[in-house]
C-alpha cells in the first residue's frame, strides 16, 4: 500500500516535472490485432514540425507485461509513449525492441532501463560507433524536441530466435540490408509481421546505410515467411503482408538500375537525382526526396565500379 502510494506520488511528480511541450507528440495507438496496436509515424522526412516521429511503432500486450516495438526519436517521445502504452494495456513495459540503428526508431530508449531494451548485436555495435553522430544530427534538425535525449546503448543483445512473454511468443528475425543489422518480429498469436525498415509501404525507402544485395535477400526471406498482415517501418499497414515487401524490392531494383544507367550515360549526381520516377511509384510519399538522398549514398560507389581507369604515367 505504502509502496504503491509512493510509486503513484513519484509518478505524479514526474508528470508535473515533465516539460510542458511533452504533450506535443500526438500518440494515438490503433488496434491492428488481438492485443497489438500500432502508432503510425508521419510519412515525412525528419523535421521539426513532426518532432522526428516518423517511424511506425507497435505496442504488444502480453501476460508478462507490455512489449514495445521501437521507441521513437527522443526522450520526450519515449516517455509519452510509455505512458500511453501502459495506460492502454494496464501493464508495465517489460521489453523494448529497437529494430536497427537509425535514430527515428530508437533514440528514445533513454526513457527505459537499458536492461529491458533489446537489439541485435550488430545494431548495438553500430550504435556505439555511429550513434553520437546520429544524435548530433537529430539535435540539429529537431532542436528542443530532443532535449535531454542522450545516446544510450540497448542493454540486451538478441541471441535467440524467439522470446516468450507468459505464453505470447515473439519470433525474432536477424536480418540486414537496410543497415548492418535489421530486426524483424513475428507475433505468433496474430501472425502480424513487424518489418522494421526492411519494409516500406507507399513511402520511399531510405538508403543511408543500405547494402542492396543483403536487403534483397532479407526481403526474399520475409516474402516466404508465413505471416499475416505486415507493419512496415514507414507507411500504412499492409493487410495481406506481401504487397509492401514487393514494392520495397521493386523500388530498390529500379533505383539501382536507374542509377547504374545514369553513370553509364554520363550523368552527374544532380542530373541523376532529377531522373523521372516511374508512374507506378506515384503514390509513394517523399519519393523525390529519398531518391536524391539515395543518389548521394550510392552514386560514388557506382562511379568507382563503372567508370574505367584513364590515368597514364606522367612524364618525369
Amino acid at each position: 500500500m505504502i509502496l504503491s502510494r509512493r510509486a503513484m506520488l513519484g509518478g505524479m511528480a514526474s508528470l508535473a516535472a515533465a516539460p510542458a511541450r511533452a504533450a506535443d507528440y500526438v500518440i494515438t495507438p490503433v488496434v491492428i490485432g488481438d492485443g497489438i496496436w500500432m502508432v503510425r509515424g508521419a510519412d515525412e522526412p525528419i523535421e521539426s514540425r513532426n518532432g522526428g516521429a516518423i517511424a511506425n511503432i507497435a505496442i504488444i500486450a502480453t501476460p508478462a507485461g507490455t512489449v514495445l516495438w521501437e521507441c521513437g526519436p527522443s526522450l520526450r517521445y519515449a516517455r509519452a509513449l510509455r505512458q500511453v502504452a501502459e495506460r492502454l494495456t494496464g501493464a508495465r513495459i517489460v521489453r523494448v525492441y529497437v529494430s536497427h540503428l537509425h535514430p527515428d526508431h530508437g533514440m528514445g530508449l533513454a526513457a527505459f532501463d537499458p536492461a529491458i531494451v533489446a537489439a541485435l548485436p550488430g545494431t548495438i555495435a553500430a550504435l556505439a560507433a555511429q550513434g553520437q553522430g546520429y544524435a548530433d544530427g537529430m539535435y540539429r534538425l529537431l532542436g528542443d524536441w530532443m532535449r535531454g535525449t542522450d545516446l544510450i546503448l540497448p542493454g540486451r543483445a538478441i541471441m535467440t530466435a524467439q522470446e516468450d512473454f507468459g505464453g505470447r511468443a515473439l519470433r525474432l528475425l536477424a536480418l540486414s540490408g537496410h543497415s548492418s543489422a535489421d530486426l524483424a518480429l513475428l507475433d505468433e498469436r496474430t501472425g502480424m509481421l513487424l518489418g522494421g525498415d526492411l519494409v516500406f509501404n507507399d513511402r520511399a525507402p531510405s538508403t543511408p546505410t543500405a547494402v542492396l544485395p543483403a536487403w534483397r535477400a532479407s526481403l526474399d526471406q520475409l516474402q516466404v515467411l508465413p505471416h499475416g498482415a505486415l507493419l512496415p517501418g514507414h507507411g500504412p499497414i499492409d493487410p495481406a503482408g506481401i504487397a509492401a515487401i514487393a514494392q520495397t524490392g521493386d523500388w530498390l531494383n529500379w533505383l539501382e538500375g536507374a542509377l547504374t544507367q545514369a553513370v553509364r550515360d554520363g550523368l552527374d549526381m544532380v542530373e541523376a537525382g532529377n531522373l523521372p520516377i516511374p508512374d507506378r511509384f506515384a503514390q509513394m510519399a517523399v519519393a523525390r526526396y529519398e531518391m536524391q538522398r539515395s543518389v548521394s549514398h550510392l552514386y560514388p560507389g557506382l562511379e568507382a565500379s563503372l567508370l574505367p581507369r584513364i590515368d597514364v604515367k606522367s612524364a618525369p
Partner: peptide, 16 residues
C-alpha cells in the same frame, strides 16, 4: 545553379 533538395552528405554536395 542546380543542386539537390537536401544536403545529404555535407562532404560531397553536388552542384551544376
Amino acid at each position: 545553379v542546380s543542386f539537390p533538395m537536401i544536403a545529404e552528405n555535407q562532404r560531397a554536395f553536388p552542384v551544376v
